[in-house]
Design a protein around this nucleic acid. Structure first.
Lengths: 333, 333
DNA sequence: CTGAAAGCGCTAACAA
DNA sequence: TTGTTAGCGCTTTCAG
């Protein structure tokens, strides 16, 4: 079925297949009459051009890929992650392309090619949207070498210039979240942002920066903890007088993992329930939780749209494409 | 880059491209000597056969697709849904295929083709795994017409024979969940399973069946509510004496949507907090919630593997392929 | 405006 | 064991 080829359509319409090809591709050099005739025949037999053959001739796939990272909790553990996809898809379909998702993990064992690698090397897509976490040195080289257009979601941590990315404005997010806690009356606000993590992940460094700036504006003390142990000791069983003194009114967790680490700790430490918790990325489960969590709301769909739009601009080699987009956030509820 | 073709490899190796093709495809009729030579040249130039061209020649894509349904809350709203994907991917890579995800929604407006339709009609994949919710009459016809092998996740609700599916054993799940609540000491156990929904969705009917069987075994009263209103009235402000009497000790919600409907209602009705809640599909957030939720644990990775394995069997036209797989569940924590 | 022919990169008979 | 020759289905010169 669907075996019907351009040649058969041509025969049926009594024209050459080149003519059929012209109507398929909207070539203007064609008489209204034959165009209509061919179109009718195509419709009648619901002919659909074979995309593989088309791809071979055009040396294109008419497909953009999205690679998600299995190990990226920030993405998949967030049930609202799919909104990004929705945004991407809308743009992709408007451009009459296919949207293909693949998943991958940054596996170090080079024994077998990663999905990502195969897709790039085999040119299975014309462009790629990948998460920050997948843009390591090796993958970067690969993309460049194969001249594969790409956009990164999440600001890149690679010290490369010119890597195009789309991300939420993490500095601003850090600011408004801190501002929100201050509005709530908190003064002693601590932030859980690992030193190593902040080095590795730009988004953590930025969130920290937003926090720091806000606290300093309000002349409040900046208190950063890098490991949960520090916090735990403040609430430990042998807590000294000074530990009790050191307890903050609020704690900002830079990632959901950090948040859950604290929440898990809390299950054995009712004292912790006094603290106001806050985190980034949508967290709509908050209202059902024992311990409510303040969070920042992100227009993820917009983020997806921005990424896809940027990708198409790159694919079309449009001049003057902005190399990055930051998306503002607001306090969620 | 990567422009290197089979012809150039052939020239470099001083052989015919057919010979190169033979080593690519592991043809046995080739001398060890030339095979090694060609392989060396290929490696040296990291030659990768163009998959598009290969696809055209083979009339295959070496790709299997997975279509997820945006509107299917049961899938995407569940952060652990990706485990299914992990299972699928493992099998797919073992078969040296690509795995491509697309998302779709059962949009009734026929104005534009759905992604699903395009993928099928254009033969972008050799086989497809799709959720139950996408297998409507129209899509079914399409798959059959285009002879596209497919497997459905979630038992099919279409009254078609021979639709291959993989699902959790929903009857068993209903049983163990009910059994679990009984073990906990509950006697008045109500189940929220919409009448219309149970008609439409086989999985609801099955869960209900498991509940019913267990309750009857224990000589307990089967109490089914089809709309949240019934329950709400039992807890409403003007609750009569009889309403209070009618309050169950436990409530089983057949879907997460139903569960959240109850949880949202609860926010204004502390009385409801007395009730034991239970639901299906993994719900690991339970331990962080104000109101803990009993749930059934599913080996989603296994489900993915089963679906993919079945698909490959179908693609290879293996004889005697079982038409369905039911996967047992256990109580989660 | 339309047709004929070459070719995209690879595979698969059929010969040699 | 290897080379030759057609295609796979479509696009795209280049003539007419």
């Amino acid at each position: 079925m669907s075996k019907i080829t351009i040649q058969e359509i041509a025969d049926l319409a009594g024209v050459n297949k080149a003519t059929v090809s012209r109507v398929i591709n909207g070539n203007r050099n064609i008489s209204e009459k034959t165009r209509l005739k061919v179109e009718a025949i195509m419709k009648q037999h619901n002919y659909v051009p074979n995309s593989i053959a088309r791809g071979l001739a055009f040396n294109k796939t008419f497909t953009v890929g999205f690679c998600s990272d299995y190990t990226d909790k920030r993405a998949f553990a967030n049930p609202f992650f799919y909104k990004v996809l929705q945004g991407i898809e809308e743009i992709v379909y408007n451009h009459d392309h296919m949207f293909l998702m693949m998943s991958d993990h940054d596996h170090d064992n080079k024994k077998s090619q990663s999905t990502f690698e195969r897709v790039v090397v085999e040119h299975r897509v014309d462009g790629l949207i990948i998460p920050n976490s997948l843009l390591n040195e090796r993958n970067y080289e690969l993309l460049v070498k194969h001249e594969m257009p790409y956009v990164v979601t999440g600001e890149n941590m690679l010290s490369k210039d010119g890597v195009p990315w789309v991300d939420i404005d993490n500095v601003q997010a850090g600011q408004i979240l801190t501002e929100h806690l201050i509005d709530l009356g908190c003064r002693e606000i601590m932030i859980y942002a690992g030193g190593a993590a902040a080095e590795r992940d730009k988004f953590i460094a930025d969130r920290l920066k937003g926090y720091r700036k806000t606290m300093e504006n309000h002349r409040l003390e900046v208190r950063i903890i890098e490991q949960a142990e520090v916090l735990k000791s403040l609430y430990g069983s042998e807590s000294s007088e000074s530990a009790v003194e050191g307890r903050p009114e609020a704690l900002i967790c830079c990632t959901h993992e950090q948040l859950f680490e604290i929440l898990d700790f809390e299950n054995g430490n009712p004292l912790l329930s006094e603290i106001a918790l806050a985190t980034f990325d949508d967290f709509p489960m908050s209202k059902y939780m024992k311990h409510p969590v303040h969070f920042v709301e992100v227009d993820l769909e917009m983020m997806g749209k921005a990424a896809a739009s940027m990708l198409f601009s790159l694919m079309n080699k449009e001049p003057g494409v902005p190399k990055s987009v930051s998306i503002a956030t607001r306090i969620g509820s």
